[in-house]
């Protein structure tokens, strides 16, 4: 048996990377969220970071994958999958073969269905917990990671999760470093053959470039012309607001404090 200290000494992090798509030009690129995930993994001290990609090895996607190598890696494991395959099985096999303690990925892919389900499916398959929308990994101690989750409205929440775990990053995570050209050219793509599952359902769906969504019109459902006119010519009206006139500053402050507390914005 290995002593426990050896396991803790170096934390094994695997980052799931994918081939992104530039929103304007449509060219293959490193996916923004996956690049943030790589940056996040790089920031964890004493961690050994590995890159894993499941997909094809076309010339265009190779260039995109090399962008990840340019962030300071020698090699990237590529589980070969044909176009339109369900990569879940192949990824689960890859993790069975070489276990990781922490798996970091982007929230959703920039190509294909992009449903953001893969982290959840993989976690269910491996029996690991999954945490979404991270802003930072604060530290890993004794197999327990302290994470900072990004909430809407710029808020943060601290979580603790027992490893092994799968986490996804949020747009609030640190911006990825620039990819260096030389290391990107020199790095290796270690191709591994994985089992292939066809995604039959995906093939049966019709896809088309996203249409612009219709803007919602402000439809006034009014019974009479008077109501419609009032809705169209609406001005700021006293909506039953409470007005405190001729009160002392203390009484006014008391009323405001009660409202702030009821809304729960005071911390």
């Amino acid at each position: 048996m290995q002593p426990e200290t050896d396991i803790d000494a170096s934390l094994e992090i695997t980052v799931l990377v994918s081939v992104g798509r530039h929103p304007i030009t449509g060219r293959a690129r490193r996916a923004d969220q996956d690049a943030r995930a790589v940056e996040l993994a790089r920031g964890v001290s004493g961690a050994e970071v590995r890159l894993l990609h499941a997909g094809g090895q076309a010339a265009e996607s190779e260039a995109a994958l090399r962008d990840y190598l340019g962030m300071g890696f020698d090699a990237l494991t590529l589980v070969e999958q044909p176009e339109g395959a369900d990569v879940l099985g192949a990824l689960a096999e890859a993790f069975d073969a070489s276990p990781a303690q922490l798996v970091i990925g982007g929230e959703r892919a920039e190509q294909g269905e992009g449903s953001g389900l893969l982290p959840y499916l993989l976690a269910e398959r491996l029996g690991w917990p999954v945490v979404s929308g991270l802003a930072a990994v604060e530290g890993v101690e004794d197999g327990v990671a302290t994470l900072l989750q990004a909430l809407p409205r710029g808020q943060r929440r601290r979580l603790r999760v027992r490893l092994p775990a799968i986490v996804t990053v949020d747009g609030a995570a640190p911006a990825p470093r620039q990819s260096a050209y030389g290391p990107a050219r020199r790095g290796h793509l270690n191709a591994v053959v994985g089992s292939v599952t066809r995604d039959e359902e995906w093939v049966s769906w019709a896809t088309q470039p996203a249409r612009k969504r219709p803007k919602r019109l402000k439809v006034v459902k009014a019974a009479s012309a008077r109501d419609r006119f009032k809705a169209a010519a609406a001005k700021a009206e006293g909506g039953g607001g409470q007005v405190l006139t001729e009160v002392s500053a203390e009484e006014g402050a008391e009323a405001i404090l009660a409202l702030l507390k009821a809304e729960g914005v005071l911390r």
Binding site: Q242, L244, S248, L259
Partner: peptide, 21 residues
Amino acid sequence: DMIKRADLAVIGDSAEVLGAL
């Protein structure tokens, strides 16, 4: 107009009310 829009309005000197708050 702000008083009309407000859910709670306090008429008074802002520095005093903020100080008390």
